[in-house]
């Protein structure tokens, strides 16, 4: 086990994706932002899907709008490159359905439940355990799963689909998202449990 863990850090060091410290720092900030914006709370994530709270869509839309613009110019200037996940249609749809069901029941996504555990939420910890079993089952079943998740449409972006107009697509997307985020009403579910623990 200890060997596996040191192996993990060594693998990160050998990759050209930042030092272990940088990766830890990125994670630290990611977790801190998730907690500070309360994105990890059941009331925010599940609450958004049953229309009790609008923090998640507004924050996610702002993030995607600003990041897509920034990413475009970073790539354009040669300071970054796109890392696109392949569009494997069967896997995306079946996986998306299972994920959606899990998301509304657990009320946290696969990084937010770590944040929830760090806040002392036992139900989130049980969710992580379930996730561990899910991950292990997937690895074991992969040889069979591999055959049914196609067809693979490749690593495509919206601009590949439309045959160009990258900047126009990015500008349209981010404008639409920012305006929607701004126009969405503020619905804030106030959790009495948070008020007590002051």
């Amino acid at each position: 086990m200890i060997e596996r863990i040191s192996n993990m850090f060594a693998t990160v060091t050998d990759q050209a994706h930042g030092s272990v410290w940088l990766v830890l720092l990125i994670g630290f900030c990611f977790g801190a932002i998730i907690l500070y914006s309360r994105l990890d709370k059941f009331e925010k994530m599940a609450g958004f899907m049953i229309f009790e709270d609008t923090l998640v869509p507004r924050m996610a839309m702002t993030t995607v709008a600003l990041s897509s613009l920034g990413f475009y110019f970073l790539v354009d200037a040669g300071y970054a490159s796109y890392t696109i996940k392949p569009t494997i249609l069967g896997g995306l749809i079946i996986g998306g359905i299972l994920f959606g069901i899990g998301l509304v029941i657990l009320g946290k996504c696969p990084s937010a439940f770590f944040v929830s555990v760090s806040e002392g939420r036992i139900d989130a910890f049980v969710g992580v355990l379930g996730g561990m079993v899910g991950g292990a089952v997937f690895t074991i079943a992969y040889p069979w799963i591999e055959k049914i998740i196609g067809p693979d449409l490749g690593k495509i972006r919206l601009s590949d689909f439309f045959g160009g107009y990258d900047l126009a697509i990015v500008l349209t997307l981010s404008t639409v998202l920012l305006v929607t985020a701004y126009l969405l009403p503020t619905i804030n579910y106030v959790d009495p449990a948070d008020e007590k623990s002051k």
Partner: peptide, 18 residues
């Protein structure tokens, strides 16, 4: 929570991300 955690990670892996 356990079931949902399972579905989340299994589903995310099937789709290739979360």
């Amino acid at each position: 929570s356990f079931i949902a955690g399972f579905l989340l990670v299994f589903g995310a892996r099937l789709a290739g991300g979360c």
